[in-house]
Design a binder for these strands. Structure first.
Length: 456
DNA sequence: GCATGATCATGC
DNA sequence: GCATGATCATGC
């Protein structure tokens, strides 16, 4: 028989879990090998709360209107805490969800109140020894809810446009649509296109969950952006609006305006921070962190050209060869990261002037084709050990995909200097070296330029 | 002016 | 000391 809990009872039980391991909470003797992905949730459902199965679109505790979630966090090498995963919520029913408004949606019905149970993930421990450490009855703060409503609408608009198969987690800020299913072949029908779309679930992004962990577990504070709540509110438009008044001001004028002395290399970055009226980096603010928005400054020279391609974190040769595409760092990075490009344009006086900001994320259609190809080629080269092409005048030429090979993406060095290396899984055939200058994937300047030109 | 390798500068 | 965003240097 189904048990009915009041909110108070739910909370009391959640509190009673703190300090216990999953091994202690589990009635049956599950061997450690049998702890699967969902087993901690299962233990709470079956052994702790014993509420049994319920109808899918209702929250776990229907009468109290509370959904139960168990989720891991981890301690990083530098001592900070992070969420280990996104928080996966209900599967998106493409055929129905679009008929709803936000407040009648399956998402809202099921997830408006979340009883979160946190456990500490420790890589060296058996899973049965993972311990529950914190709990929280979570409701979305009003400021977040405005953004989440907007996120929900972005996902719905893609379904309505017959583009459910093009939905990317990076389309939205806090509420993502992550893939869910046994494999990438888990697909389902969508209402306005014959193309089968990957099965996806609403989820709170890993970065959003990390902020919750840092706020509620580590008790940290973050600088918050001050943005307006217009009726037509969207975060991106609000940011663009407030930056518009600085358009046409030179770097020099902006430096004076914000009292920046000298001309450090990251001057543009500082200016952007000051444009937002914050002390630290824009990307460290509450909003940008939660939404996983990375800022990049772009300079367009007076001949209307973006000189430099765009670099990203270096990859490890030994790790990149061990991943399938969909679990690779490159795929993860571009399928979950949104960018804010701050564009500065050079005029005839050689000075750079603030132009605009452009929000962008990599379309899946390019990520899954072009970037995948470049990534695959790179992996194959590393695996074969066929890395160095020739050494001429002390310059080491390699076989990695070149700028001229692909309109979107290529590979180039990225370290302090060429002696800044990572180990190779296979020694280089030509030279026999067992480590090589750090490399990263770059996005081609012309591709980025097309993106920023297509706006405004 | 472009392609590609190499390196700088800052923050943590 | 290292990771990362950003930019430089050289040869064609």
């Amino acid at each position: 028989m189904k048990k009915i809990y009041s909110e108070k009872e739910i909370r009391e039980i959640a509190r009673s879990l703190i300090g216990k391991t999953f091994g202690e909470l589990n009635d049956f003797e599950i061997s450690d090998d049998d702890y699967g992905k969902g087993s901690f949730g299962y233990i709470l459902e079956e052994d702790v709360y014993q509420y049994g199965a319920n109808s899918k679109s209702e929250p776990d505790f229907e009468e109290a209107g509370i959904e139960l979630k168990v989720t891991p966090y981890k301690r990083n090498n530098n001592g900070t805490l992070s969420a280990k995963e996104r928080l996966v919520l209900n599967i998106i029913n493409y055929m129905n969800e679009y008929k709803n408004t936000f407040y009648t949606s399956d998402f809202w019905n099921k997830n408006k109140r979340l009883q979160i149970v946190w456990y500490l993930y420790e890589p060296d421990k058996l899973r049965s020894n993972f311990k529950v450490t914190h709990e929280l009855l979570f409701e979305f703060p009003e400021k977040d809810l405005r953004i989440i409503k907007n996120d929900w609408q972005i996902i719905i608009d893609k379904i309505k446009a017959g583009k459910a198969h093009e939905i990317s987690e990076a389309d939205t800020m806090y509420l993502g649509a992550c893939t869910k299913g046994a494999s990438s072949k888990s697909v389902r029908k969508q209402p306005f296109s014959d193309i089968m779309a990957k099965q996806r679930a609403f989820s709170l992004k890993t970065t959003y969950m990390t902020q919750l962990v840092r706020k509620y577990i580590a008790n940290e504070d973050f600088e918050e952006l001050d943005y307006s709540f217009d009726t037509e509110f969207s975060f991106e438009n609000d940011i663009k609006q407030r930056l518009r008044k600085y358009k046409g001001l030179s770097v020099n004028e902006l430096s004076k305006l914000f009292g920046i002395v000298n001309e450090p290399k990251h001057l543009l970055d500082i200016i952007i921070s000051r444009l937002f009226g914050i002390k630290g980096k824009v990307s460290n603010t509450n909003e940008f962190s939660k939404a996983n928005i990375i800022t990049k400054t772009i300079r367009i020279n007076k001949n209307n050209r973006m000189i430099e391609s765009m670099s990203f974190p270096a990859f490890k040769f030994t790790e990149i060869v061990n991943h399938e595409w969909e679990e690779s760092d490159l795929y993860t990075y571009f399928s979950t990261t949104k960018f804010m490009f701050a564009v500065f344009k050079q005029k005839d006086d050689d000075e750079y002037y603030f132009e605009k900001v452009v929000f962008w994320n990599m379309p899946l259609s390019i990520l899954d084709t072009e970037l995948r190809g470049v990534w695959k080629k790179t992996v194959d080269i590393i695996k074969s050990g066929n890395i160095v092409k020739e050494i001429k005048n002390g310059i080491v030429y390699n076989n990695f995909p070149k700028l001229s090979d692909n309109h979107y993406c290529h590979v180039r060095p990225h370290g302090r200097n060429k002696d800044d290396v990572y180990p190779l899984p296979v020694p280089d055939k030509l030279t026999g070296v067992v480590e090589f200058t750090k490399q990263c994937f770059w996005l081609k300047n012309k591709y980025i330029q097309d993106i920023i030109n297509s706006e405004d």
